[in-house]
Amino acid sequence: MTSDIEHLKEVVAQLQKEVTRLSDQEDVRKLQYTYGYYLDKCLYKEVADLYSDHPDTCVEFLGGRYNGKEGVKRLYVSRFAKSFVNGRNGPVHGFLLDHPQIQGIVDVNAEGTRAKGRFRSMMSAGTHDSIKDTHPRGSVQWWEGGIYENEYIKEDGVWKIFRLKYFPFWHATFEEGWAHTKPNYVPFLSKTYPDDPNGPNELCENPMLWPDTRVVPFHYKHPATGQQVADDDLRAPRFGEDPSTSAPPLVLSTSKSEA
Rank of each mutant, 00 (worst) to 15 (best):
Y35F: 15
Y38A: 06
L39Y: 15
K41G: 00
C42T: 04
L43S: 02
K45A: 00
K45F: 09
V47Y: 15
A48H: 11
D49Y: 12
L50S: 03
S52T: 07
H54R: 11
H54S: 09
P55M: 13
E60I: 08
G63L: 00
G63N: 03
G64A: 03
G64F: 00
G64P: 02
R65A: 09
N67S: 06
L75G: 04
Y76K: 05
V77Y: 08
V77T: 08
S78A: 13
R79W: 15
F80K: 02
S83A: 14
S83Q: 12
F84S: 04
V85E: 07
N86G: 06
G90S: 12
L97M: 08
D98A: 05
D98E: 02
H99K: 04
H99F: 10
P100D: 00
P100H: 02
Q101D: 07
Q103T: 01
Q103V: 03
V106E: 00
V106P: 07
V108P: 08
A110P: 01
A110H: 12
T113V: 03
K116Q: 11
G117Q: 07
G117S: 15
S121A: 14
M122T: 10
M122K: 11
S124M: 13
S124A: 07
A125E: 10
A125V: 04
A125H: 13
T127N: 13
D129T: 08
S130T: 11
S130D: 11
I131W: 15
K132F: 12
H135T: 03
H135V: 08
Q141Y: 15
Q141L: 10
W143D: 00
W143N: 11
G145Q: 08
Y148C: 04
Y148L: 03
E149F: 06
N150L: 01
E151P: 02
E151K: 10
I153N: 05
K154T: 06
E155C: 03
W159P: 06
